[in-house]
Simulated assay, not measured.
Amino acid sequence: MSQNLILAAIDEALNQLELHLKGLVALTPDQRRQLTKMGDKSEAFCRQAVHVLSENPGIMPRNFEVANLHRDLTALDALRPRAQRLMRLSERMQDSEMALGSDLMTNALEGYAFLKIAGKGEGLDGPRQMLSARFNRSPSKAASPVDIPL
């Protein structure tokens, strides 16, 4: 029961996130490829450019909005810690999924091993054979005899 409550709380939190984060950008793979990327060194350059351009507004054409640079930099600085929190949560979700899968697989293997031993003569041959399909390897192609010229 508590597991269902946890999942319901996660679903509600995700619904709220989706509702409040509608304004986030969704790029296509092609758009991602075409964008100019900003790495660590480029970020330092951009921050310095914002500073220099803000200190010298007279050198820019009138239609160049230095305020837009400030807005984007402020938004980036506000978004990053939240993105990092979401990435940490996502990693914990993936780790939880992996741990649950591992528990399931370990217990299923243990149960299957017990079924193979204790299930004989109990009318469980059909289910055991069905489970054994997981471990059946496809037969490798028989090597054709090499024709040796005489």
Rank of each mutant, 00 (worst) to 15 (best):
S2N: 11
S2L: 14
L7S: 05
I10P: 00
I10V: 09
E12T: 15
E12V: 13
N15C: 03
N15Y: 01
Q16F: 06
Q16Y: 03
H20P: 05
K22C: 07
G23C: 04
V25F: 01
L27P: 12
T28A: 02
D30E: 07
D30S: 15
Q31M: 02
Q31E: 12
R32M: 05
R33D: 10
L35I: 02
L35F: 08
T36Y: 06
M38A: 07
M38R: 07
D40H: 10
D40S: 04
A44K: 14
F45N: 11
F45E: 04
C46L: 12
R47E: 13
A49M: 12
A49T: 10
H51K: 07
H51D: 12
H51N: 09
V52G: 00
L53D: 02
L53A: 01
S54T: 12
E55L: 05
N56S: 10
I59T: 11
I59Q: 07
M60S: 06
P61M: 00
N63R: 02
N63L: 08
F64L: 08
A67Y: 08
N68Q: 12
H70F: 06
H70T: 02
R71E: 13
D72M: 07
D72P: 01
D72S: 11
T74M: 14
A75H: 05
D77W: 09
A78T: 05
L79R: 13
R80D: 02
P81F: 05
R82N: 13
R82Y: 15
L86I: 10
R88T: 14
L89E: 13
L89F: 08
S90N: 09
E91T: 01
M93L: 01
D95P: 02
S96G: 02
S96D: 09
E97V: 01
G101C: 01
S102C: 12
S102W: 15
S102E: 11
L104N: 09
M105V: 11
N107A: 14
L109P: 08
L109W: 06
L109A: 15
L109D: 11
G111F: 03
Y112G: 01
Y112N: 09
A113Y: 13
F114H: 03
L115W: 00
I117D: 08
I117A: 06
I117E: 15
A118F: 10
G119K: 08
E122Y: 05
G123F: 07
G123V: 12
L124H: 04
L124M: 00
L124V: 01
D125H: 00
L131C: 04
S132I: 03
A133R: 10
A133V: 10
R137D: 13
R137T: 03
R137C: 04
S138H: 11
S138F: 01
P139D: 03
P139C: 03
S140F: 11
A143G: 05
S144Y: 01
S144V: 09
S144L: 10
P145N: 10
P145W: 06
V146S: 11
L150I: 15
